[in-house]
């Protein structure tokens, strides 16, 4: 017992007039699958070849490590909105960070280290870790005196602005005396365990380009231990 429509179809198929509906559907699915696989391969290559986040791009306090942050932050901008000092911005296409993620640039506007950390409280996803309750434990980066040649204190002057503006001065950054051929120098010295990377020192460095800069920790700090280079064949 075949329905008339089915009978018609089978006849049409028999004489090669028409392909059966099922084969047509398969063809359609496979064509779309092909587009999807090809598209995924191309897009994946494009995504992996995105430029990495630039070193001057700093994340708000409590931000997860960059990779986890990239997957957890949903680019909503609630942290941006709740920052009372308006230092944060969501990355646009011209900013060197994944599109839509929040960042600040220390030299333009440093984090003021609010004690109630409103940015973290605003975050709906935990991309800014809610376990961060003491702003002094924040880790946005680490300040590094990158250019000794131009730092005024290294020239024997007593500028020390970076030390004086630090919200945790004395602990995160302090003056350490060094004796050399120029005499007794007072060197701004950062304690990486205490520095939060807020960027206030970088913002206020009196030179036209800051000699002290906040860098992501993995760029700014060495790690003690042996380097394998030169010690083995490979």
């Amino acid at each position: 017992m075949t329905k008339p429509s089915a009978q018609k179809e089978s006849l049409a198929v028999k004489y090669g007039i028409e392909q059966p509906a099922r084969r047509k559907a398969f063809k359609r699915v496979f064509r779309h699958l092909g587009v999807a696989v090809l598209g995924t391969a191309v897009a994946q290559a494009a995504i992996f070849s995105r430029p990495a986040r630039a070193a001057k791009i700093l994340r708000p306090p409590g931000a997860l490590p960059e990779k986890a942050f990239d997957s957890t932050c949903i680019r909503c901008g609630l942290c941006v909105k709740d920052c009372p000092y308006d230092i944060l911005k969501l990355a646009s296409w011209t900013d060197p960070a994944p599109l839509g993620t929040p960042f600040f640039v220390a030299r333009q506007d440093p984090c003021r280290m609010c004690t109630d950390i409103p940015c973290v409280k605003a975050c709906p996803t935990g991309a800014l870790d809610p376990l961060l309750t003491d702003i002094r434990k924040a880790d946005m980066g680490v300040a590094v005196l990158v250019d000794h040649e131009n730092c005024l204190n290294y020239k024997g002057l007593t500028c020390s602005v970076c030390v004086r503006v630090c919200p945790i001065r004395g602990e995160a950054i302090s003056l350490k005396p060094i004796q050399n051929e120029r005499g007794l120098l007072q060197i701004p010295t950062v304690n990486p365990d205490k520095c939060t990377g807020c960027g206030t020192c970088e913002k206020h460095c009196v030179l036209s380009e800051a000699t002290i800069r906040v860098l992501p920790r993995e760029l700014g700090l060495g790690v003690s231990g042996a380097n394998a280079a030169g010690r083995g064949v490979w």
């Binding site: 999807a36 598209g39 897009a43 994946q44 995504i47 839509g100």
Partner: peptide, 27 residues
Amino acid sequence: SRELRSVLLVMALVLSVITGTLAWEII
């Protein structure tokens, strides 16, 4: 094809798994 959007939807989800970023949010 109106089904292209479904293809793009599947791509966005698969790419998010592969790349660890929110794939569609890039554009």
